[in-house]
Design a protein around this nucleic acid. Structure first.
Lengths: 338, 338
DNA sequence: ACTTAGCACTCTCCCCCTTCGATTGCTAAC
DNA sequence: GTTAGCAATCGAAGGGGGAGAGTGCTAAGT
């Protein structure tokens, strides 16, 4: 399945030129701009072969070459995953994150904003959810006589809140006591374990406990939560979306929020990268796009996904190197605080 | 400045037809579809007057009538603010909110989703921020030996979190004690008051207190926070955005998040509505759009904004009635839990 | 003073045609 | 395996031209 010699070079040039220019690549342009020592006719022979093997198409008979999904796939295998981000850019994002290191949400927003601008496409980052959320701490704050705010802290520094209405008047002292009791009983448990726990509880404790189970289970369910998105306008200003009604489908899907749930990250280790090109995507609106994702954080404890979404014609090298570095940074940050 | 008799009717018809159809309205269509007992020529005379007075333009010489900003303004004054939402739709959203009433964030997302779909445009809802955030409760959860998660609850059921690193090892018991102490000292205070408070504190307490002030002040600063947006794809599927590069500017502005800060809600009481049409908007990207906003919640304690953003050619009656009702619902919900 | 019919005029939209330029695919020669 | 040459193909851009929609104006009617 590997091409050799000039064939491979030609394919690489076509992909790269198309990524930059977004217009079909002519055989003459291939030799001229890259100093090949053969004539355009020779290149055309090569291209004919590449077309037969499914790497190239032409939008119409007398147009230049356009890479197929297969060509992009070949290209990304060729350039590999070990691309380093220029140290200047490493420096920039590193210090950006240093300055807001106290707040997870801030990191993620900032990281998404940076990533989107670097790759000129959509950046996707999910918060570092524990794959199975585990209870860490509980707090109850009186709001009114019968009503309290339940603040739940999960491992992975995730905070959830919910209002609880009790059947009787209940003081802040009682609430605090209740919260402390449940915190010590349930420390480190997942929702199923809390449910299975057979300690004797008062009606109010039962009620709170019930809430907890529901909240933790809900957190488990939306495996990755709603991701931080940034750079929509950057992606949609790419030429493929000019006058293109498909852009709306994509927008709709992204706004809906759960699309990332269908993309499996299984079997992917920290530092690895998954590249999904065009029709390899399960979701139809994504089949004109490429998605590159990489997990970060601590497997099974607090891990999230960071990714780039853009037209198939995206700068894969840049995206891969940015993701590599960002995923590393985020992993380190997460490790410090779990 | 008020028009009379048929003039007003004609203007109203033009606005309404243009809102529905998005195409210039012809004089013949005005008499035919609305059963007027005059000839198109008569209507044309009226239109000529309306044009002189600045209510109407024509995209070109032989095209039908298109309302100006001034016409929209006249129209919304005409229909007034007291439009009731059909009871069927009231029922729907009422019960939707009932079911998730325990979680503020859930309400707001749900409300935004509903609103966007009803008006087929962008829905904007800010969380009910207290105009000056006040301290309610503090909690500290040990993450590592030197590191704790600070969970801050503000009035208005707002929860903020931040990681704090201490200079010495500190146990969960100590943290709990510390949190309780500060909670009782600072109850109900605004950031400035906490800062001015002269109680003797240990170094750790000082550090946490310092964090608190910073967090509360930060909350005050972004007056409305980042709003919940929904329905972007609905708005952008309107005909005015087909093949229109302006859509990207709007997208960019909305993604940025702080645009709503420039729109003043001052002098607006609960239940009132502010309608900003086209060039009345301060932000250039908004000058092709109309924005309708209404405050909700409890003035000076916990209030937010709910609004609709769409092309000037939007269904004002629907938007106004939806906002009226939604703002009422949200106000009630907020009142219950503050 | 208001309304109307009639008509010329204007402008867009759509379709067809042509031209131009770019680029390929093929063939035959090297 | 490579090249030159050449016909064939296709899209983009531009130029009519006709159809249709709608107005503005004028002069007559109420």
């Amino acid at each position: 399945m590997t091409l050799k010699g000039r064939r491979e070079t030609v394919l690489k040039i076509i992909v790269q030129d198309y990524i930059i220019g977004a217009v079909p690549v002519a055989s003459r342009a291939i030799v001229d701009k890259h100093g090949l020592e053969v004539s355009p006719a020779t290149i055309r022979n090569d291209i004919a072969c590449l077309e037969e093997e499914g790497y190239i198409t032409h939008p119409h008979h007398s147009a230049g070459s356009v890479p197929t999904d297969r060509a992009y796939r070949y290209y990304v295998e060729l350039i590999g995953e070990n691309i380093e981000l220029p140290s200047g850019e490493q420096y920039l994002i590193y210090h950006l994150l240093q300055e807001t290191r106290e707040e997870i949400e801030q990191w993620l927003k900032l990281a998404a904003a940076w990533l989107a601008r670097v790759v000129c496409n959509v950046a996707v980052i999910t918060s570092p959810g524990t794959t199975r959320s585990r209870f860490k701490h509980l707090d109850l704050v009186a709001l009114q006589d019968f009503v309290a705010l339940l603040v739940l802290v999960l491992y992975g520094a995730k905070v959830k809140q919910q209002v609880v209405a009790f059947d009787r008047r209940i003081t802040q002292d009682e609430l605090t006591q209740l919260a402390n009791k449940l915190t010590s009983i349930y420390a480190g448990m997942a929702s199923s374990e809390i449910l299975a726990n057979k300690v004797e509880l008062s009606p109010e404790e039962k009620q709170v406990s019930h809430c907890l189970v529901k909240m933790i289970a809900a957190e488990d369910k939306l495996e990755y939560g709603k991701p931080y998105l940034d750079g929509l306008h950057l992606m949609l200003s790419q030429p493929e979306f000019a006058n293109n009604p498909k852009a709306l489908n994509i927008l709709e899907m992204l706004e809906e929020g759960s699309w990332l749930g269908n993309i499996s990250c299984r079997g992917l280790n920290k530092g690895e990268i998954k590249i999904i090109i065009g029709e390899e995507n399960p979701e139809p609106p994504l089949q004109d796009l490429s998605l590159i994702i990489s997990p970060y954080g601590i497997p099974d404890k607090a891990s999230g996904i960071v990714g780039v979404l853009g037209p198939k014609r995206m700068d894969y090298a840049k995206a891969i190197s940015s993701l590599n570095y960002l995923s590393l940074l985020l992993s380190n940050s997460v490790a410090e605080y779990i």
